[in-house]
Simulated assay, not measured.
Amino acid sequence: MWKNLHKALPYYLLFIKDEYFEISITDYVKIWIVRLNLDEFTSHLKESNLGLEIHSNELIENGIHMLLYPEELKSATVSNKEDKLEVTLCKSFGYPLKFKVLLSIGSQELFFQKIIQPLLKTIQDLHSSESELRSILKNKDKEIEEYKLEAGEICLRYLKTKPFNDKAHMEKHYRYDNYFGSATIPDGLLDKSVDIPKETMVKRDIKSEPTSQVIENDPVIPKVEIKEEHIKIEPQSALPVKRRKIRLNI
């Protein structure tokens, strides 16, 4: 279930724990994701809480609790770094506990799988529910009219409801028809499975933090380029010497 990361932030978090610890965050325009194994998840928690002496099991349990119940967080900060999203969560467990992690931006396929497809399924479900309830209400009104025609009386006069006005109801709730018309959302789209290799996602996410370190150490790069140019110059300086030897022989 997607949950608001923090009431002051326009981000939503989805946490899934199976073979990996999968953390997804979206602003409903983009999606970011990271997948960590147990050792990586534990390492992130320890690096986020240097100096905190606590048993690993308790650390992991509390870390999972932070991600499952973001509404209980004391604070949360989000920072965009190009195609990365740095997130820091903080919660009190009798002591302050932090969790800092870097997420990578997800593909369009991932956005469809995590955001669009669930929304389409929800819309379809609500539309089916509405249609069913409208049908029940109209049938109930028919039954009441038939009851009245047979000289039946409704005792609870003051609690009687007005007959259901289907036309007025649909004029008020028109958005589904505006976007989808009389057509239903295709089952093929609702059941579509998008192939996102887990191995690729894991490798990319594991490299995300070292990549940020390389960016911070950019001043080293010019030195490497200078060395390469210097190596190229050395063979050129040897050419004139060779020519002089040839002239002397002549």
Rank of each mutant, 00 (worst) to 15 (best):
N57P: 03
S212V: 11
P118A: 03
M201S: 11
L38A: 07
D141N: 14
I105F: 04
E40R: 02
Y176C: 02
E132G: 03
D27C: 08
I233W: 06
K245L: 11
K207S: 15
R244I: 15
Y176G: 01
Y28N: 09
P235E: 03
F21K: 06
V34F: 02
I23G: 00
L13C: 04
P118E: 05
P118S: 04
N178H: 08
E171P: 01
N62L: 06
K223L: 07
F99P: 11
G188P: 13
D125Y: 13
A168K: 13
E132V: 05
D125S: 13
K167T: 12
K142V: 09
K192E: 12
K91L: 01
N249W: 01
R204H: 05
I16D: 08
E229L: 14
D205C: 15
F111D: 00
L67F: 02
K172H: 04
S75F: 06
F164Y: 07
E19D: 13
M66W: 08
E40T: 04
R244S: 14
D166L: 09
Q117I: 07
V220K: 07
Y158C: 01
K160I: 02
I154D: 00
K114S: 09
F111C: 10
G152V: 11
T211E: 05
V202W: 10
K223D: 10
K140D: 02
K167I: 10
T200M: 10
C155A: 12
C155M: 09
I123F: 13
L120M: 13
D191K: 15
L5D: 01
G106K: 04
L13A: 06
E171C: 11
Y179Q: 12
E209L: 08
L13V: 13
R35Y: 03
L38K: 11
L13Y: 00
K98E: 05
G106W: 00
L38M: 01
S237I: 15
H230S: 15
Y69R: 12
E199A: 15
E47D: 12
H65Q: 11
Y176S: 07
K192L: 15
K160N: 04
C155R: 10
E22N: 04
A238W: 10
P219E: 07
H230F: 12
E145D: 12
H55I: 11
L9K: 04
S237M: 15
I60G: 04
P186G: 03
N217A: 09
E228P: 01
K98I: 00
G63N: 06
E150L: 14
E234D: 13
K142C: 02
E234S: 12
I154Y: 00
D39N: 14
E71F: 08
I33D: 08
G181N: 12
C155T: 14
K17C: 03
M201C: 11
P118G: 04
L149K: 12
D83K: 15
I246T: 06
W2Q: 09
P240V: 07
Y95G: 12
A238Q: 15
S212M: 12
I233V: 15
V224M: 11
E143W: 00
K223M: 13
L110W: 02
L137T: 00
D191G: 07
K98P: 01
E71H: 09
L133I: 06
P186D: 01
D39W: 09
L156Y: 05
L248P: 00
E153C: 02
K232I: 10
L159D: 14
I231A: 10
T161H: 11
F93G: 07
N139Y: 06
V101L: 03
K148T: 09
L13I: 14
T26M: 10
L156V: 08
V224S: 02
L102G: 00
E229H: 07
